[in-house]
Design a protein around this nucleic acid. Structure first.
Length: 574
DNA sequence: GCCGTTTTCGGCCCGACTGTTTTCAGTCG
């Protein structure tokens, strides 16, 4: 079992225990542990196998959970989990996906009416059995019926890039409301998570009713879910929920901090406040009745002697430890990027010509790009053999002769073949300035085989980097089963780079894996994999993911000049 | 279930909104 399997087991235990009405703090302990283990970046098996180390040194892992990790590693299952599963059909857990139905109400439905599936729940509502239950009523029954279709459709989280379009449109519309003094989108959107489940809008106004009227009038609103004095929630297309919170200017910082989260980050922050005899809520920081901070995020954090945290770091991972020693990383910014080292042209499956890509890259302020069209195995993209590649490289040489202050690198995205090895011979690759290698076929091979293929590519002296190293497509396709730890060790040994693919559907290496690669001393290269000129703009999504990983300008290779890059990858001077 | 320089028991972040309630529980973020 790997870390994410064990993390999933703890998450499931938390869900099942919550449904059983267990102590909520016990439930939280399982969920905290699940989150910590998913972010760990080092295999639990490695720690467990080392007698000099203890699993209980991991924050949130005590004697009990350490034992359970041991059992999971040794046997691949957990008796307690099996037992709980037997008591609670998986379909019952789906009841809790209905908005307004939590563990308590779901348990009542299960115990009183023996409801086990969403279909049975619908029938019970239609027979008006549900409204007779204690704690339920006519309204609850209607809410459940209205929520059934939402629970049936799998929970869809939008790509950050998609959420960004909706968020910017909402901001544009709300800015017309005269009574709004300040406006921000908080939540996981502000933290730059790769997917966003809902949007949290924060507005400063002394006229909450006017703001809410503007909110109701938004183009694209499909339903109003709640409306109170200061809080409101609506649903937009694709089931996207948008929450609005209206606060006074004196509370803006506290509210922005609070609604940006993450929840785990806030729990730690509030615990720190409590230790100091302070209380933090969304209105401010309080000592007794007296408010001592709240107008800005900076003063909220300062009240705890903490620096302002970039939202991307607020995941309760490393940020409080970094802050404690004054070593918060200075995160990379889009303007730091000098070159883009993965893109395609009409030679293969790109939609723009070589000249068009160069012009678009120069317009975006880049100093160099690598053209990395596909190799021949990728037949769907009309991949290049040595001869056609040579023709492209001749064209690049001629083009470079005409360019001033900009360089086009002769590159290729060489396919890592199913049986291992690369799709182009070394005598072709040696002539390239930059080679990215990637897996396109045989993605379902077993872990050892995929890992071996990628390691084989890293051992080729002419390969510069591995592109989209896990192959996942967010919401659509899982990662290959690759042992990244083993890959990183070999990459570091041979001085190779790893790509963070900036395409909003890929974004791999992800934040956790990027941070792990950094610990191995591997430079990250953030690339667009652009197949058209406008796709060069996806670079900003990669930057956000890199920031979430805590990467600085120095950690990202393509913030350097190409000359500096060449020293990094140990290739010949052009 | 975790945690500890007030510590090995008794805490564990905090408030808004809804619906079902005559004062609060459940859900949500």
């Amino acid at each position: 079992m790997n870390n994410s399997d064990i993390s999933a087991a703890f998450d499931e235990l938390g869900d099942l225990l919550e449904f059983q009405g267990a102590n909520p703090f016990r439930v939280r302990a399982y969920r905290n542990a699940a989150r910590t283990l998913k972010d760990l970046g080092e295999p639990l098996a490695t720690i467990a196998a080392n007698p000099a180390r203890k699993l209980t040194d991991i924050q949130g892992i005590g004697a009990d959970l350490a034992d359970k990790i041991g059992v999971l590693l040794a046997t691949g299952s957990l008796p307690q989990l099996e037992e709980l599963r037997a008591q609670t059909p998986a379909s019952v857990m789906a009841l809790m996906r209905i908005p307004g139905l939590g563990p308590k109400k779901a348990a009542v439905l299960f115990k009183e009416l023996a409801i086990q599936t969403l279909d049975q729940l619908r029938a019970a509502c239609e027979a008006h059995q549900v409204q007779e239950l204690k704690g339920f009523g006519k309204k609850t029954e209607e809410t459940i019926l209205a929520g059934l279709p939402l629970a049936a459709q799998a929970e869809v989280r939008l790509y950050w890039a998609e959420a960004d379009v909706v968020a910017q449109d909402i901001l544009r519309q709300l800015r017309k409301c005269q009574s709004i003094a300040q406006l921000e989108v908080a939540g996981s959107y502000r933290r730059g998570r790769e997917t966003v489940g809902d949007l949290d809008i924060l507005a400063v106004s002394s006229q909450p009713d006017e703001v809410m009227d503007a909110f109701v009038a938004l183009d694209g609103r499909e339903a109003t879910l709640a409306r109170g004095d200061t809080r409101m929630a609506i649903r937009m297309a694709r089931g996207l929920q948008v929450d609005l919170r209206v606060v006074l200017a004196e509370s803006f910082g506290a509210a922005l901090q609070y609604f940006t989260g993450s929840k785990a980050h806030n729990v730690i922050l509030r615990g720190m406040a409590k230790d100091r005899g302070l209380k933090i809520n969304e209105y401010g920081v309080y000592r007794g009745e007296e408010r001592i901070a709240g107008a800005t995020e900076e003063e909220v954090y300062e009240a705890m002697d903490l620096p302002w945290f970039p939202p991307e770091l607020r995941e309760a991972r490393q940020e409080f430890q970094w802050a404690a020693v004054g070593k918060l990383p200075e995160l990379i910014e889009l303007a730091d990027i000098r070159g883009d080292l993965h893109m395609h042209t009409t030679y293969t499956d790109g939609r723009a010509t070589l000249d068009e890509m160069v012009l678009a890259a120069r317009e975006r302020g880049l100093k160099y790009i690598a053209i990395t069209d596909h190799s021949k195995r990728v037949t769907m993209a009309r991949g290049l053999d040595g001869e056609r590649l040579g023709k492209q490289w001749d064209e690049i040489d001629q083009l470079n002769a005409t360019l001033d202050g900009f360089q086009v690198l002769k590159g290729v995205e060489v396919d890592i073949l199913e049986r291992g090895g690369l799709d182009l011979p070394d005598d072709v690759l040696v002539r390239a300035d930059w080679v990215v290698a990637s897996v396109h076929y045989g993605q379902n091979q077993p872990r050892e085989q995929i890992t071996e293929r990628i390691i084989g590519a890293l051992e080729n002296p002419y390969v510069s980097a591995i592109a989209h190293p896990t192959g996942r497509l967010i919401n659509r396709r899982k990662s290959y089963d690759v042992d990244l730890e083993a890959v990183f060790q070999v990459a570091h040994k041979h001085g190779k780079l790893m790509e963070l693919n900036a395409n909003p559907a890929r974004l791999d290496l992800d934040d956790v894996a990027c941070a792990a690669a950094k610990r191995h001393g591997i430079p990250i290269v953030i690339s667009t994999d652009a197949h058209s000129t406008d796709q060069l703009d996806v670079m900003r999504y990669g930057i956000i993911q890199a920031r979430r990983a805590g990467l600085t300008k120095a950690d990202v290779a393509n913030t350097r000049t190409w000359k500096q890059m060449q020293k990094l990858v140990g290739r010949k001077q052009a």
